[in-house]
């Protein structure tokens, strides 16, 4: 088999399945998203086929590396690599000098400290519950009756954030219910929720130690209110790469290009 021209990374996340296709020069030539849904294996397969179609090869000929919560479910992968390694690689590719990566995804959030050479020196992840993750914001947006994408804009309108003490999604939801019952404006509640989640993520990041530049990745980095709240909480500027939710898939594609070149 000759060296492949395209390399794919597939990030089977808890909320969204993402695919990135690199050409032999390392340029991103295609990206795909799909809700992971109740059948993540099918979603992964669909994205894999889209990637292969774009590359113009049968799916079983496309060098692909899988990452994300559902990585073990992805058929036909050269190998599986954790989100930690993939986010580190992807972030370093997009923000070449970055030394800290904060990734907030649907199911977990993580802080990764990179060694000067870009390898993972230390990392911390949230506990087993959804506290401090995108899922937390999703549940809260639902309770406030606003679309998830609008939650950040709503929060940005608040003059003062409401006080939300819980980061447990279940407890915070009851707090939100009480605040709504007390007629607290929803923008203030949204801002309070952002503060609460940032406190949680900052604790995680401080555990590994913040060394700038700090890259902020994952779907939650698309929320400008999160970027500003987290940045002021950490006292450090956050660099959000383009398409932050694709950084894991990009990292996986980079692993695929390295692996496929070693294993002809």
């Amino acid at each position: 088999m000759t060296a492949a021209r395209f390399f794919a990374g597939l990030d089977a996340g808890s909320t969204t399945t993402k695919g990135v296709l690199l050409d032999s020069e390392g340029a991103v030539v295609a990206r795909f998203f799909r809700a992971s849904g109740p059948r993540p294996r099918d979603s992964a397969q669909a994205v894999r086929e889209q990637l292969a179609a774009q590359a113009g090869v049968p799916a079983d000929r496309l060098p692909l590396v899988a990452t994300g919560y559902g990585r073990a479910q992805v058929a036909g992968a050269l190998k599986t690599v954790t989100e930690i390694t993939c986010h580190a690689l992807g972030a370093r590719h997009l923000v070449p000098d970055c030394r800290t990566v904060i990734d907030v995804g649907g199911q977990d959030s993580k802080a990764i400290r990179l060694a000067p050479d870009g390898t993972v020196a230390d990392f911390a992840m949230n506990d087993k519950c959804a506290a401090g993750t995108g899922r937390f914001l999703e549940i809260m947006a639902d309770r406030l009756g606003v679309p998830m994408q609008y939650l950040g804009t709503l929060a940005a309108q608040a003059k003062v954030p409401a006080s939300v003490s819980s980061t447990c999604a279940v407890f915070a939801e009851s707090e939100v219910v009480s605040l709504l019952a007390d007629s607290v404006p929803s923008d203030e509640i949204a801002a309070g929720l952002h503060e609460a989640i940032c406190l949680r993520i900052a604790a995680l990041a401080n555990r590994v130690g913040i060394t700038p530049p700090v890259a902020f990745t994952g779907g939650v980095a698309l929320n400008p209110a999160m970027v500003s709240a987290l940045s002021s909480r950490l006292g450090s500027r956050l660099v959000v790469p383009p398409d932050p939710q694709l950084v894991g898939a990009l990292g996986a594609a980079l692993v695929a290009s390295r692996t496929a070149q070693i294993i002809p």
Binding site: Y69, T80, V81, T82, E83, I84, T85, D108, T119, V120, A121, F123, M125
Partner: peptide, 9 residues
């Protein structure tokens, strides 16, 4: 994920 990332590191 934590354990596999540990092994990778």
């Amino acid at each position: 994920t934590r354990l596999e990332a540990f092994i990778e590191s």
